[in-house]
C-alpha cells in the first residue's frame, strides 16, 4: 500500500483518537481527562470524514464535543472536591488491564481474516461485488472492490432525513428515540434537582 494523503490523515486521526482515549483513562487530573476526551471525539469525527460520512462527523462535533463533553465538564466542576484524588485507579487495575489487553487481542484475532482485502468480499458474500459491479471502483484500491469516494454523493443529509421518516425506513425507531430522549431529559431533571420538600 502506498502512502497517500488519505493514509496520513487516517494515521493522524487514529493517533488523536487513541492517544486522547488513553490519556482519558490514565490521566491523574480529571479535568485533563475531560479535555482529552474532547480530543478523542474530534479524532473520531475526522475518521468519519475519511469514511465519507460528513453528517455524522458534524453531529459528532455538535453532540459529543458540544454537549456531552461540556456536560462532563459541568459535572466535574459541580463535584470539584473530588478532582484531586490521590489514587485515581482502584486496587483491581492490573486485572482490568489484563482484561482490556485480552479483549483487544481477541478482537484483533477476529478481525485478522479481513487483512486480505479480497477476503472481505468472500466473507460477506457477493453483496459488495453486486453493488459495485457497474460503478468505477477506487483506483487506489482496485482489488478491494471498494467504491470510490466521489461516487458516494447520493448519501446526503436529505437521504438520511427521508429514511428517518418514511414508513419502510426508520420511523418507528425514530419515534422511540424521541421518547427515550424525552424520558432521559425528564429523568435527569427529576434525579438531579434539589428536594425542596
Amino acid at each position: 500500500m502506498e502512502i497517500t494523503w488519505q493514509t496520513i490523515a487516517f494515521a493522524a486521526f487514529a493517533v488523536m483518537t487513541l492517544g486522547g482515549g488513553l490519556m482519558v483513562v490514565i490521566s491523574r487530573n480529571l479535568w485533563h481527562s475531560a479535555l482529552f476526551l474532547m480530543l478523542s471525539f474530534f479524532g473520531t469525527s475526522g475518521l468519519f470524514v475519511l469514511l465519507v460520512a460528513p453528517f455524522l462527523a458534524a453531529v459528532q462535533v455538535l453532540v459529543y464535543i458540544g454537549a456531552i463533553a461540556i456536560l462532563v465538564l459541568f459535572a466535574i466542576m459541580l463535584t470539584r472536591r473530588m478532582m484531586g484524588l490521590e489514587e485515581t485507579q482502584n486496587t483491581q487495575w492490573p486485572a482490568a488491564a489484563a482484561v482490556a489487553v485480552i479483549l483487544f487481542i481477541i478482537l484483533v484475532i477476529t478481525v485478522s481474516p479481513l487483512v486480505d482485502e479480497k477476503a472481505v468480499t468472500d466473507i460477506f458474500g457477493d453483496k459488495v461485488a453486486n453493488f459495485n459491479a457497474n460503478l468505477p471502483v477506487d483506483p487506489d484500491a482496485k482489488d478491494s472492490g471498494v467504491v470510490a469516494n466521489q461516487d458516494l454523493n447520493i448519501v446526503t443529509v436529505e437521504a438520511i432525513g427521508e429514511a428517518l421518516v418514511t414508513r419502510d425506513g426508520f420511523v418507528l425507531p425514530f419515534e422511540l428515540a424521541s421518547i427515550l430522549l424525552t424520558a432521559a431529559l425528564i429523568g435527569a431533571i427529576v434525579v438531579a434537582r434539589e428536594d425542596e420538600a
Partner: peptide
C-alpha cells in the same frame, strides 16, 4: 483502531474510581 479504543474504554470503566471517569 476501533478495537483498541474499545479496550481502552473497557480498562477505564473497570479501573477508574471516579464515577465521572
Amino acid at each position: 483502531v476501533s478495537a483498541a479504543l474499545f479496550a481502552i474504554g473497557a480498562y477505564g470503566a473497570l479501573a477508574r474510581r471516579n464515577a465521572i471517569a
